[in-house]
């Protein structure tokens, strides 16, 4: 990613057999179209290798990520959208959303905000808070779900050592995660610890990573939760 102030790098994760439509502009107004100058999409396997790169027509409103990755064999890819926007967009941060649904499933689709990651460059486009120490809270009763956190290092050169901490009442379980550039992982988090329910998770990293908290139906593995975490510093 360039260090130009009008650049935005956003990141998501993609799995096979999902309808996955990514909005390239948040609001379909003429001004938003003028501001999107270019967009390049790249997809990376778990080790960080680039397996697909596309220059996306910036006039498009919706990018069909599910279709673009339909031939890929990987279980999970990290997808980066490297955009250039007209400087008039600032200080407002262009925000992308996406629609996600397992094809043919009765589950509800998810609609989520794509991580604005910026590639580890200090945040210069509106969000001035610390955004690399985050948390997420879970419901206290048990569900037939599996939980995890997807983490991806979007930086070009710097490896990242991240901490993922899961809390069970007063107990905490920490995971150390090493991520070379563009590598990513789905770190599983146990739903309970000796009968005590998972209450929250926390991620800490030296700079902004792509981070999503994930919940899956235990039986099918379909996503029921795919959401950003929340910063401690508001």
């Amino acid at each position: 990613m360039s260090s130009k102030p009008s650049g935005l790098l956003s990141a998501t994760f993609a799995e096979p057999a999902y309808d996955h439509l990514v909005e390239l502009v948040h609001q379909r107004d003429a001004a938003a179209h003028r501001r999107l100058a270019s967009l390049r999409m790249t997809a990376h396997d778990a080790d960080g290798r680039e397996v697909l790169a596309l220059d996306v027509d910036p006039a498009r409103e919706i990018f069909d990520l599910g279709a673009a990755l339909s031939e890929r064999p990987e279980e999970r890819l990290m997808v980066l959208f490297d955009a250039r926007y007209d400087e008039r967009v600032f200080p407002y941060r262009p925000h992308q959303y996406a629609y996600l649904h397992p094809r043919g499933a009765t589950d509800a689709p998810l609609y989520y905000a794509v991580n604005a990651t910026l590639g580890g460059v200090p945040d210069r486009i509106g969000a001035t808070n610390i955004n690399n120490v985050e948390t997420y809270v879970f419901r206290p009763r048990a569900f037939a779900e599996r939980y995890s956190v997807m983490l991806g290092n979007v930086s070009r050169f710097a490896a990242a050592q991240a901490q993922l901490i899961a809390y069970y009442g007063t107990e905490r379980v920490g995971h150390q995660i090493e991520l070379p550039p563009k590598a990513h992982v789905e770190a599983m988090v146990a739903a309970d610890l000796e009968g005590i329910r998972l209450s929250r998770v926390e991620t800490k990293a030296p700079f902004r990573l792509a981070t999503y908290v994930v919940g899956r139906r235990a039986e099918s593995g379909h996503l029921v939760l795919f959401d950003h975490l929340f910063t401690y510093v508001k």
Binding site: H26, T106, A108, Y111
Partner: peptide
């Protein structure tokens, strides 16, 4: 807010999602 509905529409599982 968007209300996500699957194959059973509003009679099945649902999701809610904020927008900016």
């Amino acid at each position: 807010y968007l209300v996500g509905a699957g194959a059973r529409d509003l009679d099945g599982p649902l999701s809610l999602m904020h927008v900016k």
